[in-house]
Every structure is written in C-alpha cells, then in structure tokens.
Amino acid sequence: MIWYIVRRLLQMIPVFLGATLIVYLLAFAASGDPILTLAGDKPISPAVEQQLRAQYNLDKPVIIQWLIYLGNVVRLDFGVGFNGRPIADQIAAAFPVTIRLAIIAVIVETVFGVIAGVISGLRKGKLIDTTLLILSLLVIAVPTFVLGFVAQFILGVKLGIAPINVGRDPSWQNLLVPGFVLGAVSFAYVLRLTRTSIAETVGADHVRTATAKGLSRGGVVTKHILRNSLIPVVTFIGADLGALMGGAIVTESIFNIPGVGTLLFRSINAGEAPMIVSLVTLLVIIFLLSNLIVDLLYAVLDPRIRYAK
C-alpha cells in the first residue's frame, strides 16, 4: 500500500514537469509581448523595459525561463507578479474562495446526483426515471453560463434572495448559488452514471441472495447495491475536480467572485506567464492528487482490489 502510494507520487513528477513545460511554452508561443501589455498605451523607456525584462527573466530563452522557474518553485519561491505582489500571496488570497466554491459544487453533485441516480436506477423506465433523465439531459445541454445568467437574474434581480455580485471575502452563504451553478453539469453526469450502474447491479446474483436471506430493501440498497455501484461514480467525481477548477473561470466571472478562476483569467489576458503556470500547475497537482485518492478509495469500495506493489 505504502509502496503503491510512493510509486504513484513518483509517477506524478513527469506529468508535473510536462504540464508546466507545455503551459510555459503555450504562454509564450505565439504573438504578444507581456511587457508591452503591462506598459499599456504609455511608451516605455528602454532602460525600464530592459530592467523589467531582466527582472522577469524574459530576456532569456523560454526553456531557461522554465528551468529558472522550476528551480524557484522547488524552493517554494513562486516569484513576484506583474502587479508587484508575490504570486504566492495572491494565490493564497484567491485559493480559499475557490476551494469553498468547489466544496459546495462537489457536495451538490455528489449528494443530489447519487440520490437522484439511485431513485432513477431503482425505478428504471418509470415516470420519475424519465423525468430525472430528461432533467439531466437539459442540464448538460444548457451551457453553464446560461444557467448562471438565469440563476443570477431570477434569484438575484427578480426575487432578491441571493446576492447578484459576490465580491470580496465571500461567505459560504453567498457562494451557495454559484456553487450550485458550478456543480450543475456534473450533477447530471453523476445522476446518469449512478443510474446506469445501479440498474446493472440490481439484477446481480448477490443482490438476489441478499434479498433471499431476508435483508430489508433499504439494507439491500445501501449495503449491496450502492457500494457495488459507486466505483464509476467515485472515479468521475475525482476526475471532475480538475474540470470544476476550469469551470470556476466561467462561474467566478458571472458572479464576480475573486477566486482562482478570476485570477487565472486576468493573468492569462495580461500574459503573466509565471502566474499562469503556477495556477495551472496547482490545478494539475490537485487533479493528480484527487485521482490518487480515488484509486485508493477503490480498495475501500471493492475489497477484491489490492495494491500489492
């Protein structure tokens, strides 16, 4: 078990290096000069430009910049952003907000998705199943930003029960509506996965045996059907954490939430490569770690799975 975790952590190193390199190359690949973007319309003096280029290592080849960046990151030095604030500080300010948002979204998709999926899977072909299935298709087909606009308009503007703009230092309460919007698409996928999985397990021999030995319906569902059906669902939720962080760009821009998504979008527009790379790398690490946790959860859900090596 320990060795399995160690091996997986070691496997993350090339993925981490590759992802940072790709993003670094992409952030610099085509046109656009970040220093000119930074200067704006005002002409910049050659001396200042030279100084800025040297300060952000922009005068060196991209590969060297990447190596310098990596060397600093290993020493936990993320550098200074174009606005003069340390990148680590800016991320530390934005990160808890997005984490809260993501936690709400994951709870929404897991709790509502699994419950709706179980109901749907156990009553396959009935009215409630069809209704839930159509609902899930609609949620997938309507883009997140349309859902966001409508939720903001109806709940915020018309009814006035939710804040229209979330703003600085958001509370859990204020993040509730954006969290629901962020988790909506994944909710639909969790519903569909759970439904398929449950419908497959219901007919299995061990379920019939459990019913035959006199276990109550609730016992059969929670102990025998659900546990066996959850593996694909858990896999999806783990892989979804990365997508949620990407989706946060859209949700945060609609509700004006000062989280990682907003920070990332702003730094992408400014061509602020160290910030972009730091944020994307952070998201990639979260994604890899959540996938590792999912793989370890397999062993809990299915005792046949053992990690020997």
């Binding site: 090339p14 993925v15 962080m245």
Partner: peptide
C-alpha cells in the same frame, strides 16, 4: 500514456483560453 495524462490533467477550457489569448 504519460503525455496523454499531461494533456488530460489540463482542463480543456483552460488550455484553450491560454492558447486563444496568445493567438489574438
């Protein structure tokens, strides 16, 4: 497979924004 993992780990929208911004 490792290269696929790298691209898989970067959310599609995020990667697309990074390139699209550079392309103008």
């Amino acid at each position: 497979s490792r290269i696929t993992d790298i691209f898989f780990a970067v959310p599609m929208i995020l990667g697309a924004i990074v390139i699209a911004t550079r392309l103008g």
